[in-house]
Design a binder for these strands. Structure first.
Lengths: 230, 230
DNA sequence: GTTCGATGTAAATTCTTTGTAAAAAAAAAG
DNA sequence: CTTTTTTTTTACAAAGAATTTACATCGAAC
């Protein structure tokens, strides 16, 4: 009961069992409910840390279950739906779901999302939205699909975190970003460490971008910004 | 009994239940069979209007079941197979299947095909979109129809999973692919295992591609990508 | 100019990821 | 059913990165 328990609500027992198989492999305990009322009851008795909720349910549909749960708790909820047009409602109406997946779903992706939602400050739209696969500023081009950085025609070798940091900066050229913001953008919301870690990677990037027409400028007392030289 | 009944033959009960879930939603009645002999018996007793038949079966394999059914009936058959190379046999040897799908399959697509087969004058080859039957990158050529790999003129012997992994990489040359993505592409969404299984096959492929002009590069912290050497 | 917190950065440390051989398990062939 | 082959898992070494530390330096305010 409690700290590893996930409640899976679906009227199809198979869906519950599929989820159970994959989630238990990752150390979660899975409790199933086949109706909306059963779900509400199990939330009380089992104290789950997250609920996976199908929209289509007998007795009490997913919308209603979600509304009632949200009335008095912040239990993370991942919605499941078979219909694409429900997605807009989930996203648009701010029902309070933390994330959603369309059925039929990829079970490993479900596990990944459960973990993501359980991380502090997860922003689902960032996961679901397509990010551009290429950024350019000055004579620097960053390709996210190949994870390559080029200064003019010359490829530049950057490490994982340097790459992520550079992308974060390229997403907001000219804007001053605090170390906190950069940690959120490049490390994720659950990073647990010194803000000054950013400085070290900035230093590395500055060296590697020395030959380019852009640079990472210090905004004293604030953070950093990406600017064109001169 | 009869006019809406579909017989689903698969030794994996989950596959049957998945099909049942979706087919029943569309008004069909689903009868399951887990072995070839059970399938033949159920054809007599249940009089299905269509059979969905997995090739890999205990007792009597799908080929044999199909042959025996075809000996004295025109029952529409949709073949399921996990192996791409079986597809050639199904299509080429005119075994008598009306359509086929490779596993893992999209259940909604299965429903669509069931309906299509039941429509008169259905032409399956039009639905099974051609995927390229040949990929080449550097001096490596991969033929999906013959499942052969050549480095220049020299044939290279690769195992099934190595082949599938190589195809996945060849479909996205230069792109960084995570282990998850590679599992989805080469193993299927329902693979239930360690992501590091990918690494082992990558190591094997690297040895076999050592003499070629391409290689599988590690993208640290991310996954792998296929690139030309130098 | 002096002070003091903020920043730069090299080096040390710690942590993660990856390569790979070998064992185990599973699947295919006989 | 037994043998062979393939696939997956495991375990550990090695490589590679990320983070922290420590100290030098800088910049703003007075």
């Amino acid at each position: 009961m409690g700290k590893d328990t996930i409640l899976v609500v679906d009227d199809e027992r198979n869906i519950i069992e599929l989820a159970r198989m994959y989630l238990e492999k990752d150390g979660f305990t899975v409790v199933g409910a086949e109706t909306g009322t059963e779900a509400l009851r199990k939330i009380e008795t089992e104290q789950p840390i997250l609920m996976i909720l199908d929209l289509m349910l007998p007795e009490l549909d997913g919308w209603e279950v979600c509304r009632r749960v949200r009335a008095n708790s912040a239990l993370p909820i991942i919605m499941l739906t078979a219909r694409d047009d429900d997605v807009d409602k989930i996203v648009g109406l701010e029902l309070g779901a933390d994330d959603y997946m369309t059925k039929p779903y990829n079970p490993r992706e479900l596990v990944a999302r459960v973990k993501a939602v359980l991380r502090r400050g997860y922003h689902p739209q960032a996961e679901n939205a397509e990010q551009p696969e290429r950024y350019s500023f000055g004579n620097v081009v960053v390709s996210t699909d190949t994870r390559e950085v080029r200064v003019g025609e010359t490829p530049v070798d950057v490490r994982t975190k340097e790459f992520d940091l550079l992308v974060a900066l390229m997403e907001h050229p000219g804007k001053a970003l605090s170390r906190e913001q950069l940690l959120n953008l490049a490390w994720g919301f659950d990073f647990y460490g010194e803000t000054r870690t950013v400085d070290v990677h900035v230093a590395h990037l500055r060296k590697k971008l020395a030959v380019s027409t852009i640079t990472i400028e210090t905004v004293w007392g604030v953070g950093y910004k990406l600017v064109e030289k001169d």
